[in-house]
């Protein structure tokens, strides 16, 4: 029996809304340690890795490890029926072919349950090696979203260059060229405006903006986002979900032939 009760139910809605355009169907893996998902987009250029720890749930029971294949589009439709402040409980029998979502209003005066058919999805699990990143930039998630959106109107690729002076996002296209530089400001009076750069050595990488833009759909989940980069390796775009875990994206770089 798998049963998980999430008081901040809208967190699940935000997670699914953040990934449903990148990945259409995926396996949610349940174990006693928590609720995870790992999936690549169809072109195998980007990867989503979700991890929600069991201790972040008000109640979490998983008698036997199980993998629940779901259509993320259908899951998003069901979660749209949950109230923003509803408590969400997921339930699935060990050998069942459905998963039930129960939504309870805070005043418990409205309870609804939706049953979603599970799918058989062959899971291709990738090993993500620990990487000694040359640079990790942490900036407000809204700032990252804005940079990706602004540069998308200029070109379809971005060069992200991290130096001790700051991190520069450059793009060029038919319209022209654009450079956006964000400097470290750990002294910003408001924490949510802080930008920090942990630099071991300067690094510059080129990426397709449409994926970075898609990752920014996770903005509602966290105040900040971290970009971790190393030469000729995928960038890790990391949204920490407070007290629960993280939603991470990896994107393969574009490399000169």
């Amino acid at each position: 029996m798998f049963e998980a009760r999430l008081v901040q139910g809208n967190l699940l809605k935000k997670v699914v809304d953040a990934v449903k355009d990148l990945v259409t169907d995926a396996n949610f893996d349940c174990s006693s340690s928590g609720f995870t998902l790992q999936a690549m987009d169809n072109s195998h250029v980007s990867l989503v890795s979700l991890s929600l720890r069991s201790d972040g749930f008000e109640h979490f029971r998983c008698d036997r490890n199980m993998s629940m294949g779901m259509s993320l589009g259908n899951l998003a439709k069901i979660l749209k029926c949950a109230g923003n402040d509803d408590i969400v409980t997921m339930k699935a029998a060990d050998d069942g072919d459905t998963v039930t979502f129960m939504f309870e209003s805070p005043k418990e005066d409205r309870v609804s349950d939706f049953e979603l058919k599970l799918m058989d999805i062959d899971s291709e699990h990738l090993g993500i090696p620990d990487t000694d990143y040359a640079a990790t930039v942490t900036l407000p998630a809204a700032e990252y979203q804005r940079i990706c959106r602004d540069l998308s109107s200029i070109g379809d690729t971005v060069v992200i260059s991290a130096t001790k002076d700051g991190v520069k996002f450059s793009s060029s296209g038919d319209v022209g060229t654009a450079n956006i530089t964000v400097r470290q400001n750990t002294t910003a009076d408001k924490k949510e405006e802080q930008v920090s750069i942990d630099l071991k050595e300067p690094v510059a990488l080129t990426f397709a903006l449409r994926y970075l833009n898609s990752f920014a759909k996770a903005t509602p989940l966290a105040s900040h986002v971290s970009l971790s980069m190393a030469r000729d390796l995928p960038v890790m775009v990391d949204y920490q979900i407070s007290d629960m875990g993280h939603l991470r994206f990896y994107l393969a770089p574009k490399i000169e032939d």
Partner: peptide, 14 residues
């Protein structure tokens, strides 16, 4: 022009 790589080149199937 830089070529788009794929994650399979960086992450191995487990």
């Amino acid at each position: 022009t830089p070529m788009q790589n794929h994650l399979d080149e960086f992450f191995a199937m487990v």
